[in-house]
Design a protein around this nucleic acid. Structure first.
Lengths: 393, 393
DNA sequence: GATACTTTTTAAAAAAAATAAAAAGTTTTC
DNA sequence: GAAAACTTTTTATTTTTTTTAAAAAGTATC
C-alpha cells in the first residue's frame, strides 16, 4: 500500500506542494491513479491538503503536501576534515542547527567510530524518538560503491560493509553516496531550473569534483567512476597528485592547490592580508578574497582559469545545458565566474559556449547536506515501511 | 493498427529472428500483448513464422521474422569526397552492390543536385517499384539538425529544408543524420554486444568523430553538438584547424592529418613504398601499412597515440563499458590498437583502463551505411503507413 | 521411463490508462 | 457588464495492457 505510492511521496517531497495534475506529470501516471494514491496517503496521515492555488484560467487546483513530522532524515556531509550533520523533516526543512565535528578522514583508523559517535549524539540530543527517523544519508569523498554500501577509499568497517556496520551501530537504515554525486543530486532536485536536464555540476572543494546530469538522470558510468574531472591529465607541471599520476587538474585548481600556492607566495614575500594568519587555510583565503585582498583574488583567479580549461573539454564532449559551480568553494562564486568564462571562450569552438550557461549554485554550502537527504529519498523504496512511517492495520 | 506495432517491427528488424518472449523483453510489453501484435502483423503479411528454435530446457519457442521484400530502404553514406548508396531489405540484407559516386561536399554548389541525381539513378536502376521504398536515410558530416532536417555545414537547399527538398525531388520520405552519430547507431544495433549500453564509438575518418551511447541511448547533448572529440584543444602545435581554432586533436590524428604528414615526410626524403604514388591518399597509406611499410605504420601509430591521449580524457569523464574503433579507418583496426592502449594507460588514473574494453568494430566499412538504415528504422513511426507498407482495408 | 524441473503458450482476472463528461474558473466580446 | 467561448481540474466510464494463473510442450535426472 505504502510502497506503491513512493513516487508520489518523492514528487511531494521535491516540490513541497503539488496539485494532482503536477503529480500526474511528475510520476507519468494517469490522474485517476494519482487521485486514488493521494486519497490513500491522506487516510494514512502522511499527506494533507494545504489549500487552493491560483490558476491561469480554469478551475483552481487543490494542492497537497507531506505532513512535516511524519518522519525525519539525518543527513551527514563529510569532507576530508569536517563532518556536518543536520536533521531534516518531510517538508525538506532543517530541524535545529547544522552541527559540525572535526573528523579527519584520511590516515585515521578511528574515523568510523568517531563518525558513529557523532551520529548517535545528534540523534539523542534531538529529543526525537528513534523510530521517527527514516534513515541516515552519508555523503563523502572517495570511490563509493553505493550498491554494496562501501567506500573503497576511506572508512573501512570491520568484517562487513560500511553501510551495514553503521546501520547496526546507529539502529537506523543507512545509505551512502559520493560527495560530488550528492551535490549533483541536490542541484538536480533543489537547484536552478537549468540544472535539471543536462548539467555538469562542479564541486569546488578539496578536489574539483564533477557530477553529471544527463537526460535528467545522474550518470555514474559503467562501473561508477565517471566524472573524474579532478584527475584529467591537463598539466605538465610535474606536481604529484594523490592519485599517483602527475599533472592532474586538481594539482592546480583545487582548494588544496590554492592553499599550497598561498603558502608558497607568502613565503616568497608576497604582500597580502593573509600574512596575519599563522597557517593559511582555504577558509582564510576565501574570507580575504571576499574582502578584496589582491593576492588572494589572484590565486583564486588562476585556479579558476585552469578549471575553465577543463570545462572547455567538457563542453566539447557533453554540450550541456548548464555548468553549475557548487560545493564549499561556490560561496565565492562570483570570483570564479569571469576567469572560468574567459578560459572557456578561449579554448572552445566558436559559438559552442553560447549554448551553455555558466552559473553559481543557489544552494551555497548546503548542497551536500541536501544531497544526503536526496540520497535517502531516492532509496526510500528499499525501506521496510512498517518500521518507520507506521501504517494503521 | 500498423503504427501500434512499430516497436515489434523494430525488434524484429534488429534481431532478424525473434521469439515472442524475445520481443516481449525487447519492447518491455507483456507476452499476451506481443502475441496479439505478431498475429496482427502476420495477417498483414509483414511478418512470418520461420521455425522453431532450440531450447535450453522447456518448450521450444516459435520464431518470427519480417518478410524481406515487404519494403526497402535506401541508405546514402556521404563523406567529404565519396558518396556510397545501397538498397536494404526488411531482413537488413543488401540488395545488389554498394554503388559509389565521387561527390565533393565542401565548396560545391552543385552537390545537392548531384546527390539527388545519384539517388534517382539507384532507385530507377534497381528495377523495384517506387512505392516499395519506405524511405531514404542520408548520413553525412556536419552539424545536423535532424529535427528540422537541415545540415548547417553542407548542402543548403533552395528556400526549404534539405530533407523536404530531397524528399520532393526523389518522391520518397528522407531522414538525415550526422555520420558519426549514424555509425554509433549502427554499432549499437548491429555491432559488438559490449557496444550496446555505455560505449564511445570513434569514427576514424577525415576527422576523428565520436558518437556516444549512454544508458543504451545515443546522446547528442543539449543542442545536438555533443561528441566534438575532433576539436578537443589538446595540442600546442599552432596548426590551424578547419574550425578556426589551433591545436585541435584532428590536426594530428585524422586521416587528413595522416595524409599531410605522409606528404611532408616523403618530401623530406623518407624511404617508403608510398613513393610509387603520384599523390598519396589515405587509402594508399592504409594499403601500404597493411603490406608492412614501416613509414606508413609509423605515421599511423603516431596519430593513434594522440587519439589515445584524447580517449584517456574520455575515460576519466565517461567511464564507458567500451571504446569501439569504427568508420573508414577501422579496416586497419589492429594497427591502431596498441599505440592507443599505450597512450590510454600512460594518461589514465591507475586501473581505470581495466574497466573499459577497447575493440575494433566488426562492421568494417559498412557501419555508416547500416547507420543510415537505422536512422530510417528509428524514424519509422513518422511515416504514413498506407503510403508504403500497404494495409488491407 | 517415470518424475521433477524449464520454458513457452493460452486463458482469466486485475490494474492502469485513455476517453469522455462534468464542474469550476477566466477571458473575450458585443 | 453579462453571456459566450475557452481553460483547467475533477469525476466517471470504457478500453487497453499487465499481472496472475494454468496448461502445454520439452529437457534433464535418477
Amino acid at each position: 500500500m505504502f510502497l506503491k505510492h513512493i513516487d508520489l511521496i518523492k514528487g511531494l517531497y521535491y516540490s513541497k506542494t503539488a496539485s494532482l495534475n503536477d503529480l500526474s506529470i511528475y510520476t507519468g501516471r494517469s490522474i485517476p491513479y494519482v487521485t486514488k494514491g493521494i486519497a490513500d496517503l491522506m487516510k494514512l496521515d502522511i499527506v494533507k491538503e494545504v489549500g487552493i492555488r491560483a490558476s491561469s484560467g480554469g478551475r483552481k487546483p487543490a494542492t497537497y503536501s507531506l505532513i512535516a513530522d511524519t518522519g525525519f532524515i539525518l543527513s551527514v556531509a563529510m569532507n576530508q576534515f569536517l563532518t556536518r550533520i543536520v536533521i531534516v523533516n518531510m517538508n525538506n526543512e532543517f530541524v535545529g542547527e547544522v552541527q559540525e565535528f572535526e573528523l579527519k578522514l584520511g590516515d585515521n583508523k578511528d574515523a568510523i567510530h568517531s563518525l558513529i559517535a557523532c551520529i548517535k549524539a545528534v540523534v539523542v540530543n534531538s529529543g526525537l524518538p528513534q523510530d521517527k527517523f527514516l534513515a541516515i544519508g552519508i555523503t563523502m569523498p572517495g570511490f563509493i560503491d553505493a550498491f554494496l554500501g562501501n567506500n573503497l577509499s576511506f572508512l573501512k568497517a570491520p568484517e562487513e560493509t560500511l553501510v551495514t556496520y553503521i546501520a547496526k551501530q546507529a539502529g537506523l537504515p543507512v545509505f551512502i553516496e559520493n560527495d560530488s554525486t550528492a551535490i549533483a543530486l541536490a542541484e538536480q532536485k533543489f537547484g536552478l531550473p537549468i540544472a535539471r536536464n543536462n548539467s555538469m555540476i562542479i564541486n569546488l572543494g578539496w578536489g574539483v569534483g564533477l557530477g553529471m546530469i544527463i537526460n535528467k538522470e545522474i550518470f555514474k558510468g559503467h562501473s561508477g567512476f565517471a566524472g573524474e574531472f579532478s584527475h584529467l591529465p591537463l598539466h605538465k607541471n610535474g606536481k604529484l597528485c594523490s592519485c599517483g599520476k602527475q599533472g592532474c587538474l586538481e594539482t592546480e585548481a583545487s582548494l588544496l592547490a590554492i592553499e599550497a600556492k598561498a603558502a608558497e607566495g607568502l613565503k616568497h614575500g608576497q604582500v597580502s592580508s593573509l600574512l596575519k594568519y599563522d597557517t593559511v587555510s582555504a577558509d582564510n583565503i576565501i574570507d580575504e578574497a571576499l574582502k578584496g585582498d589582491a593576492f588572494a583574488i589572484k590565486i583564486i583567479a588562476e585556479a579558476a582559469y585552469f578549471i575553465g580549461q577543463g570545462l572547455a573539454i567538457l563542453l566539447h564532449l557533453m554540450n550541456p545545458e548548464s555548468i553549475i559551480l557548487s560545493g564549499k568553494g561556490s560561496v565565492i562564486g562570483k570570483l570564479w565566474l569571469s576567469p572560468i568564462q574567459q578560459a572557456m571562450n578561449e579554448h572552445c569552438i566558436p559559438h559552442l559556449t553560447t549554448y551553455t550557461q555558466l552559473a553559481v549554485s543557489n544552494l551555497g554550502n548546503n548542497a551536500q547536506l541536501l544531497g544526503g537527504v536526496t540520497t535517502v529519498i531516492e532509496n526510500l523504496y528499499k525501506l521496510n515501511p512498517q518500521a518507520n512511517i507506521s501504517e494503521p492495520t
